[in-house]
Design a protein around this nucleic acid. Structure first.
Lengths: 226, 226
DNA sequence: GTTTTTACATGATAAATGTCATTTTTAACA
DNA sequence: TGTTAAAAATGACATTTATCATGTAAAAAC
């Protein structure tokens, strides 16, 4: 069994508040899984009964609409926890969690998390702050959906992906999203997204390297996003 | 000084977990305010250093856009807490809070809330759950903004207002919102909102009684909203 | 009670975005 | 390596929604 002590999740998430003894408890109760790109960690409506620590890879939290479009609510990367909300609320998952890049995750049972929550004030405060952070982001994205155009939201999202996930050695964005997924994040039709990417390409704001995207003029993108 | 024990907020919010001793502490530290319709409790960017208990009235949490439109993120009614998120995150308020109907509120200093959070597990769990509930709602509204038309969102919002705030003796909605505010909730232009209300009126889904709105065919509205 | 302001309403028009159809490119895999 | 399937790209067009202009009704101020 891996020691959780060295794990990136332990260093970045609310779990950083745990003491040595608690980390041992954690290591003994966790289960590790590998999730292939495209596979689901859990689906909307499922009861999860615990949280997932994302050790590696990228996941998306999304909801399927009646017309078959997948609206992406949040991307999750290594170091983050997943499924906290529905665990705390005692509700089935509101969103589906799927892997966008192969993921390595650990599952921690609910009882364990609640024990930490009740006995470690710093942990509960951390967890609370992380949910608060999610709430703030969600509210701001909601406002952006209404107040900004698709073009602005695309620019904003590209910058955001660049900030959060970084770039490859060839300067292209590290997260590999399909056009459909990108459209799902900004909340628009796939064709509209593709068209705007072409426009951005022609304006030299970005460069399309096959399916990859390279940001060429970050300053102009930032200006556009406002 | 009012005893908090009998207060509606104490009965409905996370504060219901407090014991007698804690309620006394609460009553001694709180400050009561009256906020007139239109006035602000706090503005975006302000540091609040505590939470507000809404004893009476209705408030809105909103953000002003560059083009002067006020996007409403959430309505708050009596029994709810306000400003929890920015207090917990240690950040200036992300949204402005203003009264839509005259409000009576109590302010509870941060130190007090944190004390309860650290010493009363049920309280911290309650508070956590209420933020989680906000998060879920925000995510769902975000999805609705993308996946539903303005017409659907209007129908949905009218039903929601009816559910949450109830109706007057003349069957009109109890929350008195201007068309502009209603537009701010569903995320559209005021004119579009007015136009659709007229349409709904012609279709006998609602009746416009002066500035008030009466829901006449709830079943049809529900069908429309889906 | 009259004036002034604000909210509500409606029409005309433009702009943004979605939808459907088709082609091209890329990736998967037998 | 050729075949097939999936993803990306583009055009044509329809629809939704915003914007601007203007009129009317209601409320507030004087």
């Amino acid at each position: 069994m891996n020691k959780c002590d060295q794990c990136i999740v332990r260093q970045l998430s609310s779990l950083k508040a745990l003491n040595k003894e608690e980390v041992v408890k954690l290591a003994n109760s966790k289960t590790t899984y590998t999730i292939k790109k495209g596979e689901a960690l859990f689906e909307e409506g499922e009861v999860t009964n615990g949280v997932f620590c994302v050790k590696d890879g990228v996941g998306k939290l999304s909801k399927l609409s009646a017309n078959g479009k997948d609206q992406i609510v949040k991307l999750v990367k290594s170091g983050e926890l997943l499924g906290q909300r529905s665990m705390i609320s005692n509700e089935p998952a509101n969103l589906s969690a799927k892997a966008i890049a192969d993921m390595e995750v650990c599952f921690i049972p609910k009882a364990e998390i609640l024990h930490f929550f009740n006995n470690n004030n710093q942990f509960s405060l951390n967890l609370m702050q992380s949910v608060c952070e999610d709430l703030k982001e969600s509210e701001n994205e909601k406002i952006a959906l209404v107040q900004k155009t698709v073009k602005q939201r695309l620019a904003e999202t590209l910058l955001h992906l660049h900030d959060e996930f970084g770039e490859n050695s060839d300067k292209t964005l590290k997260v590999q999203l399909t056009r459909e997924e990108l459209a799902g994040i900004i909340g628009t039709a796939t064709e509209s997204c593709i068209r705007l990417l072409s426009d951005f390409n022609k304006l030299d704001l970005i460069e399309l390297v096959g399916k990859k995207i390279m940001l060429k003029n970050i300053k102009a993108l930032k200006k556009l996003a406002e």
